[in-house]
Amino acid sequence: MAEEEIKTGGGDAGEPIPFMQQVLDNPFLLLFLGITVPTVTYIIWGVMEVASIPVAQ
């Protein structure tokens, strides 16, 4: 089977780096996503539901 070596990193001049690779190569963007998604769907949503439980009289 032909062994092709695929280099990530697009060092070749002129060849544009694919969008997804730019995302994956940006640690701080990933950090932002990794904190925002669970904060919204898990923490904020959850806290809102708990906060809206009526208090016993």
Partner: peptide, 8 residues
């Protein structure tokens, strides 16, 4: 970084 390419 780098992949093995087409493999089975």
């Amino acid at each position: 970084s780098g992949s093995a390419g087409a493999v089975s």
